[in-house]
């Protein structure tokens, strides 16, 4: 029986899709069976970040409508045996997703996997609410930046009122992932500090992902950052986050790039 996790934020461009791919791959690297589900109907991108865009045949809406069975629509990752993708439709409207249809697909996914990770669209409209509705756990992705923190606060409100868990009067487990964090700027006082963000949002911290060129490089190549370069700082931060989600206690630290002399020497060539 899977744990259903939604990756959400309110604001766009803060790293939901990157986080979904990285957490999905990190959990699969740890031996768990994982399905990442793209809920961004009309603007799918998880397939691109996962490097599966050329192999998409069916999508979530095809499964909801009964045009394809779930196993036919799942795309198996070529690098990780236990990682699967259910893409969003690129051509249809999100209104093609019925509440009952999504509920049925989520039930089926729950039976098949250890983890189901739903990549939410930006915004607070129906698409975002559908993505979070069946979640057991929410990961709120936030940048240390005023508009992102404000939007995250809105999303936390929705998680506590509009989800199946909330409707049953249960507590939604929520975690914060702070992305694009630049310790130098935070030290200079030019960026919201981690404590400030945690203070304002008052949900527990799951990980701090440092600003890094490795994130862009991984998405260029279509490979989750935890898989593309497992030793880089953002990958280690995501790997720790995955272990915390599994219930392990991992001390929180801000991973920094380890640079050897050779790394520095070859840095320009590798970029």
């Amino acid at each position: 029986m899977a744990k259903v996790l939604v990756v959400t934020s309110g604001k766009g461009g803060v790293g939901k899709t990157t986080t979904t791919a990285a957490l999905g791959a990190a959990l699969a690297q740890g031996g768990q069976s994982v399905c990442v589900v793209d809920f961004d109907v009309g603007l799918r991108n998880l397939d691109l970040v996962m490097g599966a865009e050329r192999r998409v045949v069916y999508d979530l809406i095809n499964v909801v409508n009964g045009d394809a069975k779930l196993p036919q629509a799942l795309i198996k990752d070529k690098r990780l045996e236990t990682l699967h993708l259910l893409p969003a439709s690129q051509t249809r409207d999100k209104d093609a997703l019925t509440d009952a249809g999504v509920a049925r697909v989520m039930d089926e996914l729950r039976d098949k996997f250890d983890w189901v990770i739903c990549d939410s669209p930006a915004g607070i409209e129906r698409g975002a609410q559908l993505a979070m509705h069946h979640a057991d756990v929410a990961v709120v992705v936030t940048n240390p930046e005023v508009s992102s923190v404000r939007d995250s606060d809105r999303i936390i409100g929705l998680l506590d009122s509009k989800t199946a868990k909330a409707e049953k009067g249960e507590d939604m487990e929520k975690h914060l992932i702070l992305t694009r964090y630049d310790p130098m700027r935070a030290d200079r006082g030019d960026m919201l500090k981690t404590e400030d963000v945690l203070d304002i949002l008052s949900i527990p911290l799951l990980a701090i992902i440092p600003e890094s060129q490795e994130v862009l490089r991984a998405s260029n190549l279509g490979c989750p950052v935890t898989l593309n370069n497992p030793l880089c700082a953002p990958a280690r931060a995501y790997a720790d986050a995955a272990r915390r989600l599994k219930g392990e206690t991992v001390p929180m630290s801000l991973p920094v790039e380890r640079k050897s002399f050779l790394d520095k020497l070859f840095m320009r060539r590798a970029a």
Binding site: R54, V56, V57, Y58, A68, Q72
Partner: peptide
Amino acid sequence: PDKVKVTLERG
């Protein structure tokens, strides 16, 4: 119908 696997590879 369930025993049909459809694959597509865009090249």
